[in-house]
Simulated assay, not measured.
Amino acid sequence: MVRVETFETYSCREIAGSRRGRLSQHAYANAVEVSAFFLADGRRISVEAGWDGERASQHFLRVLHRSACRRFGTVLGPAYNAAHRYHFHMDVSGGGFCR
């Protein structure tokens, strides 16, 4: 892997759908949204196209997702809900919430 494509890190906002007005980990700059990975051979594997795409892309993304779950406190991806269908949310909060 030579590059990771992201689209949101710091954003002072509440957790989407939060009824208690809790701030998102993005509000503390503790989270990142990862949308794609660029490989040394020139391929771009996006979460949106690859999660349910060709077998090699599915395998690559699922391995990365499992690996992220061991390193971050919260990891959310396409299997979590429709809002995460096109990216992985990774943050340093929590104690192992991985979906």
Rank of each mutant, 00 (worst) to 15 (best):
C69H: 07
S57N: 13
V32S: 08
S93W: 09
G50H: 03
S35W: 03
G53K: 02
A79N: 13
Y80G: 06
S57K: 00
R99V: 00
R44M: 13
V34R: 02
L39I: 04
A49M: 03
E54Y: 11
C12N: 14
A82P: 06
G21E: 02
G17Q: 06
A49T: 04
T6R: 09
R62T: 11
A82K: 11
L39K: 11
E8M: 05
A49L: 03
S11G: 14
W51D: 10
A36C: 06
G21C: 10
G96N: 10
V34P: 02
Q58P: 12
E33P: 02
R66Y: 10
A68N: 11
R66D: 15
R62H: 15
F72R: 06
G73A: 05
T6V: 15
G96V: 04
D41C: 13
Q58F: 07
R44C: 08
G94W: 00
R66M: 07
L76I: 00
G53M: 08
R22Q: 15
L23G: 00
A29L: 12
S93V: 01
T6P: 01
T74G: 02
A82Q: 12
M1I: 14
Y28W: 08
F7D: 15
F88T: 04
Q58N: 04
H84L: 15
H65K: 14
G21P: 02
G96W: 07
V2S: 07
I45D: 07
V32Y: 01
T9W: 08
F37P: 08
Y28H: 10
A82S: 08
D52A: 09
S57T: 11
T9Y: 08
F97I: 10
Y86K: 08
G17H: 13
G42L: 03
L61C: 09
G17K: 09
L64N: 02
S18R: 00
F60A: 10
V75I: 00
H87P: 05
Y80T: 12
H87K: 04
E54Q: 14
W51K: 04
G21A: 01
V75Q: 03
M1D: 07
F88C: 05
A49F: 04
G50R: 03
L64Q: 15
A31E: 01
F7E: 06
A31L: 06
E54C: 09
G95D: 12
H65A: 15
R85Q: 13
S57H: 13
R44T: 13
H26I: 09
H87A: 05
R20N: 14
V32D: 00
V47T: 03
F60K: 08
A83Y: 10
V34Q: 11
H89D: 12
C12I: 01
G53D: 07
E54M: 07
A36W: 01
V32T: 14
Y80E: 08
N30R: 13
H65T: 12
A68W: 12
V75Y: 05
R55F: 14
L61G: 01
G77V: 01
R44P: 00
E48Q: 15
G96E: 07
R55G: 10
L64K: 09
R66L: 12
E14A: 09
P78C: 14
V92K: 05
N30A: 08
I45P: 03
D41W: 11
R19P: 12
T6C: 14
H26T: 05
F72L: 07
R71T: 14
